[in-house]
Simulated assay, not measured.
Amino acid sequence: MSTRSKLPAFAVSLVVLAALGLGGCNFGDAKSQAAAPPPPTVIASQPIVKTITEWDAYTGRFAAVESVEVRARVSGYLTDIHFKDGQLVKKGDLLFTIDRRPFALAVSSAEADLKVAEAALNFARQELKRAAALVTSQNVPERIYEERESGVRQAEARVLASRAALDRAKLDLEFTEVRAPVSGRIDRHTVSVGNLIAGGETDATLLTSIVSLDPIHVVFDVDQNAYLRYVRAAQAGTRPSSRDNASPVRIGLPDDSGFPHAGALDFLSNQIDRASATIRARAVVDNKDLLFTPGLFARVQLLGRGSYDAVMIPDEAVTVDQASRVVFVVKDGKAELRNVKLGPMVDGLRVVREGLSAEDVVVTSGLQRIRGGQQVVVDARDTNGVVKTARVSPEENTR
Rank of each mutant, 00 (worst) to 15 (best):
M312N: 06
A335S: 14
A380V: 12
L349F: 11
D321Y: 15
M312S: 07
D332F: 11
V362D: 01
L367W: 00
G366A: 08
R325L: 07
V311H: 00
R353N: 08
V362M: 05
V361R: 07
G333A: 13
V326I: 14
K334D: 00
G343W: 04
V351C: 04
R350L: 13
G343C: 02
G372M: 00
V376T: 02
E354S: 07
G366R: 04
K331Y: 02
Q322I: 01
R325W: 07
A335D: 04
Q374N: 01
L356K: 03
S357R: 09
Q375A: 12
F328V: 07
A323K: 13
K331V: 01
D360Y: 05
D309N: 10
R350S: 09
D315P: 01
V326C: 10
V377W: 02
V329K: 12
A358I: 02
D309G: 00
D382L: 06
E336T: 14
V363Q: 03
V362Q: 08
L349N: 03
K341S: 14
N339G: 04
G333I: 14
E359Y: 01
V330L: 01
L349W: 04
V340M: 09
V330T: 07
G372K: 08
S324W: 00
V361S: 05
K341N: 08
E354I: 12
G366T: 08
G343T: 04
M345V: 15
V326G: 05
R325M: 08
T364D: 01
D347W: 07
S365T: 11
L349M: 13
A317M: 03
R338W: 08
V361N: 02
V311T: 13
I370D: 08
A380L: 11
N384R: 12
R350C: 02
V326T: 13
V327W: 06
V318A: 00
D379Y: 15
V363A: 04
R325V: 02
M345G: 10
D382E: 03
